[in-house]
Design a binder for these strands. Structure first.
Length: 672
DNA sequence: AGGCCACCTG
DNA sequence: CAGGTGGCCT
């Protein structure tokens, strides 16, 4: 009993004596990382994560624009900008027919949009402005007018492109202010707090120059440029006009369908509306893609008030009413699209089903979504853990029975709470979730505890996405009944329906800014699975924590302390066994009723409400034997005698059940 | 330079 | 368990 402290103290004294030989120690410490699959993957994962995050950010920088979801797909002529900007810009453009005033006016028209874009999801617009092309243009060479002109033209073209693309974006303030900003802006926010992000800041200045270069060429533009500009403007307007027309016809159709009683009125095409024949057909065709969704969006956004909304416009002239409705529809539609895109981006498959089934979700219908999804290759699809597919269709118990192992040692990974007390659904279904099926990490990690490819990007994406979702879109749905996700949906994520709900935070979860006792408890339980978690991994499993440098290091520190305690305990018992005359290291086994286990379990699983995975017993047994052998061989004379042991143990981390990712986990654990 | 680790100390 | 230190690694 008391010998533990003594042993530990002795160990410490010894270490202290060894201190001067830091060199050895370093090697020892570093060893696991150098060759250990775990630490290595840790680094990789970390780097990859960083890159990914970077990539993601870059993506958003370049933009909104890069985000194919919002861009390409939205070639549907729908975003509210198209209409609104037309209304706003028409007069100006009209005045700007004179090339002399064209540019100023074009600035007025174009720049705001650029800003709009850049101010939104990413500081992106600049990236879209092709800084490289633009850079020279922003440095007017006194004599080289042609070149300047040429560059300027290209710049203009780029900007027009960006304008057009911007129009296809949903720049609805509310949209960005809520879902999108919460989604991607949040990441930037966090990025600021994340140590690694700070390194990436240099990108900002670049954008700055991009923006500068954007304005520069416009000033003092020659007449030739003016013509070109005019041309482009006209093209641009032409396109907008086309869209507007489509809008009109589409809205008319919609009105037709909805208000048959107003047949007489609708029979009159809008003034100036092109022929009904072919145009109408094409418009209708286009409209079919977004009409239904738009209408539904309106209905969902305004709920039962839809009719009232329409009713409000009854007094207006038909054109105005149509326009009004079109604007409403578009606003609603844009909002829906944003929600749709965000959701789809971070959770493609589930989102798809979710969107289709959950009627209260203000999203676009299948048609429009198809468009978005088709073009929305924002992210590569989540890796599908094929081996788990079968599990997806099984009921929970079945799945558990089949996958309770990590594919290697049957039963060794079985994780579940003991029967003590009544477990909340969270714990039971969560914690006992099959370890073998970790969606984000794919099937490859099923068989090997070391899981070299741990910590890939997708998990992070999912993780952030989840957080974002929770904080933005889904929160509004929290009171709703559980989302009707089928096992098939969940299968793609490799986590249970419940876990999905949990992560979507149907139960409201606040993002903590500090670690709580619940988190500590959770961390301790996680230690049963991983002794050397990377910060990336931790971030993945503490989704309800707003990570900062401080939080991260605290978590790391926790595990460091856990390890310390663990190794001290094991060493203590190894020495004890030696003193007791044990000769065969193979006879040393850590069972659930062994003293060592009790010591460890008391420390990491106080309350004993979690069933320690068998795998941990194996690891502990191995550690014990290693210590035993080392001490018996007198290796402890070597200052770095623990190095090989650390190295071995560092490779024995196993996957952590997905259930630990549940944001409610920590709190539930605290209550148990 | 920053992340992570083991170690030591309180 | 947290603070601090020294060290390696990228």
């Amino acid at each position: 009993p008391g010998s533990g402290t003594a042993t530990a103290a002795a160990s410490r004294r010894r270490r202290r004596r060894e201190e001067p030989e830091g060199g050895h120690r370093k090697q020892a410490r570093r060893e696991p990382e150098a060759s250990g699959a775990r630490p290595t993957s840790t680094m990789d994962g970390s780097t990859a994560c960083e890159q990914d995050r970077d990539g993601a950010i870059a993506g958003h920088n370049q933009g909104v624009k890069t985000e194919p979801c919002f861009q390409t797909n939205s070639l549907l002529p729908s975003p509210s900008t198209s209409l609104i900007s037309q209304l706003l810009s028409h007069p100006m453009v009209g005045r700007s027919l004179d090339p002399c005033i064209l540019f100023p006016s074009s600035q007025a028209v174009a720049l705001p949009q650029d800003h709009e874009c850049s101010a939104s999801p990413g500081e992106g617009a600049k990236a879209l402005t092709f800084p490289t092309t633009r850079a020279p243009a922003s440095m007017p060479c006194a004599g080289d007018r042609d070149q300047l002109s040429d560059q300027h033209l290209r710049a203009k073209r780029a900007r027009v492109e960006s304008i057009i693309q911007g129009m296809s974006l949903p720049p609805t303030p509310q949209a960005f202010g809520t879902s999108l900003e919460a989604a991607f802006g949040h990441e930037r926010e966090r990025g600021g707090e994340m140590p690694r992000e700070s390194k990436r800041k240099p990108r900002v200045p670049q954008q700055g120059t991009g923006a500068a270069g954007q304005v520069a060429p416009v000033v003092g533009s020659p007449r030739a440029e003016g013509c070109q500009q005019l041309k482009e403007q006209l093209c641009f307007l032409e396109q907008q006009l086309r869209w507007l027309q489509e809008k009109f016809s589409q809205v008319c159709d919609s009105v037709d369908a909805a208000q048959t009683q107003e047949g007489a009125e609708k029979a009159h095409p809008l003034p100036g509306k092109p022929g009904d024949g072919p145009d109408k057909d094409s418009a209708a065709a286009t409209g079919n893609l977004c009409k239904a969704p738009l209408r539904r969006s309106v209905l969902e956004v305004h709920g039962p008030e839809e009719d009232k909304d329409r009713g409000d416009t009854v007094g207006l002239p038909s054109a105005a009413r149509v326009l009004s409705q079109a604007l409403k529809d578009e606003l609603a539609g844009v909002t829906s699209q944003v929600v749709d895109s965000v959701l789809k981006t971070i959770w493609p498959k589930a989102a798809s089903h979710l969107l289709q089934q959950h009627h209260s979700l203000p999203v676009s219908g299948p048609g429009a979504r198809r468009e978005y999804f088709a073009a929305g290759k924002c992210r590569k699809p989540l890796a599908k853990p094929s081996p788990t597919s079968a599990l997806g269709s099984l009921s929970s118990p079945q799945a558990e029975a089949l996958s309770g192992t990590s594919g290697k040692r049957p039963g060794s990974h079985a994780v579940s709470f003991s029967s003590k007390g009544v477990r909340k659904p969270c714990q039971v279904r969560n914690m006992s979730y099959p370890l073998g099926s970790h969606g984000p990490w794919g099937s490859s990690s099923c068989g090997s505890p070391s899981a070299p490819e741990r910590g890939p990007l997708e998990s992070l994406n999912l993780h952030w996405g989840t957080v974002k979702l929770r904080s933005s879109v889904v929160r509004q749905q929290q009171q709703q009944h559980p989302l009707p996700l089928s096992p098939a949906d969940v299968e793609s994520l490799g986590c249970s329906v419940w876990a999905a709900e949990c992560q979507l935070s149907l139960t409201p979860r606040q993002i903590q800014e500090a670690l709580t006792p619940g988190h500590l408890k959770k961390a301790k339980l996680m230690f049963f699975f991983t002794r050397y978690p990377s910060s990336t991994l931790l971030k993945t499993y503490f989704l309800d924590v707003q990570f900062s440098r401080c939080i991260t290091s605290q978590l790391i520190k926790w595990f460091s302390n856990f390890r310390e305690f663990y190794y001290i305990q094991v060493e203590k018992f190894a020495r004890q066994a030696l003193l007791e005359g044990v000769v065969d290291a193979g006879a040393l086994r850590v069972s659930r009723d062994s003293e060592l286990f009790r010591a460890l379990n008391t420390h990491y699983n106080k309350g004993n409400d979690f069933e320690v995975p068998g795998r941990f017993l194996e690891v502990a047994s191995l550690t014990l034997r290693e210590f035993f052998n080392a001490v018996r061989a007198g290796k402890d004379a070597d200052p770095s005698w623990k190095k090989p042991i650390y190295k071995i143990i560092s490779k024995l981390d196993s996957d952590i059940p997905e259930g630990f990712k549940a944001t409610s986990c920590s709190q539930e654990l605290l209550r148990s």
